Amino acid sequence: MGSVTTKTHANGLEYIEVNTHLCEARIFLQGAQIEHFQPVGKPPLLWVSSADDYQPGNGIRGGVPVCWPWFGMSSEPDFPQHGFARTRIWTLDSVEMRGQLVDLRFSLTLTEEDCVYWPHNTQVKVLFTLGDSLSISLVNTNLDKVPVTITQALHTYFPIQDIHQLRATGFEGAKYIEFAEGPYPQTTDEVTFTRETDRVYTDLTLVQQLHTPQGIIEVSRENSHSAVLWNPWIDKSQRLARFNDDDYLTMVCLEAANVLEDKLILAPGESHTLVTHIRWLD
């Protein structure tokens, strides 16, 4: 079947280690952040910077940070970028073995400090389903008596070996905003990388592919018509914390999202589940 154990990193962060006949994975309680997932007999599907020191209070630079309850900068000054969920300690609620699949459910209890940022009665959970592929579900429920607006993303970092050889496909027909300009129409199916890329896509089809020297990574989404495609390139890499100057060469982010006109407006009692699925194509 497999094993699910709780361990502690040398710097004090607790994580869940999963080993089965199909995969191995590590999920940190801080941020409910998965930072390693590797199907048996295949390369890892997630990337983490070797410059990250896994310090409490900092989201790990890699894996899948959970951006919630807002994506990007808040309209309020001094609020944390990408929300606060990625630096909070989540609770592991349950572990379920289903054949060779493993489900792990996490929830976040808001603190008094969090309520300063987010004075709404909402519930947020993350479900990981681990097999020879990885599925992540971000579940929001509005328990308030008034509508609540949320923007969010599963900020997935992928290992791509060589940014110069990467081809990302599945983008034709969408539109995007980049560096606060646009929207621009995406007139080709393929995106290649020769500079800093920071595109927020909307009207995007549900499946994209990353063509890398090691193989093709398929990235699909549910309940999402938006995604973020990001590579910091040379200059920004030198300014990022916990990021090597040359890390841009070996990573790209393709993030399932609900942003811009795809933002969530949850009525009282309403729930929404954002899902991303990632796998190596044979």
Rank of each mutant, 00 (worst) to 15 (best):
N19C: 08
E96W: 00
V275Q: 10
L254S: 07
F171I: 07
F37C: 01
T169N: 11
V124N: 06
A227K: 11
N244C: 12
Q238R: 15
I150Y: 08
G83C: 02
L29P: 04
D132C: 01
P69I: 05
T151E: 07
D132M: 03
L130C: 01
A32R: 05
F243M: 09
E190I: 13
T149C: 09
N223S: 13
P43Q: 07
Q100C: 00
V191E: 15
H225Q: 15
H82S: 09
H9N: 13
L254A: 05
I89T: 15
S50Y: 03
S224T: 01
R26I: 01
D245Y: 09
K236I: 11
T188G: 12
I177W: 15
Q38C: 07
V200S: 13
R195S: 14
F243T: 08
D203F: 06
N58L: 12
G83S: 04
Q30N: 05
G83T: 03
T129R: 15
F128K: 04
L264Q: 06
Y184C: 06
T129Q: 11
P213I: 04
L254R: 00
P65R: 03
P77Y: 01
K7C: 12
Q165R: 10
A257N: 10
H277F: 00
T87W: 02
W47M: 08
F193I: 14
R26M: 10
L206G: 13
I89Y: 09
A257E: 12
R98F: 00
N19K: 15
R195E: 14
E35Q: 13
D52P: 06
I265G: 00
Y184N: 09
N244M: 12
K263F: 07
E222I: 00
T87Y: 05
F128G: 01
P213E: 01
T5M: 07
P77S: 04
A267R: 14
E17Q: 12
A180H: 13
P65W: 02
D114K: 06
N19I: 11
G62C: 04
K175W: 12
Y248C: 01
I234F: 07
T273R: 13
D189T: 06
Q81M: 11
H277V: 07
G72T: 02
F158K: 09
V259K: 01
N121M: 08
R61N: 04
E190D: 10
V219F: 07
N142H: 10
M1V: 02
D189Y: 03
F71H: 03
Q30P: 05
R86E: 02
H120T: 05
Y176E: 01
D203P: 02
L143I: 00
T187N: 15
E76K: 14
L206P: 03
I89S: 12
Y117F: 14
N140E: 14
M73S: 11
V207F: 00
P147G: 02
D162W: 07
S50V: 09
Q152Y: 06
A153V: 10
D93C: 03
L274C: 09
E172T: 06
L240H: 02
V64R: 06
L154A: 10
Q33L: 10
N140S: 15
I234M: 10
Y176I: 03
E218Q: 14
C253D: 03
H211G: 10
T194V: 11
S271I: 08
N58Q: 09
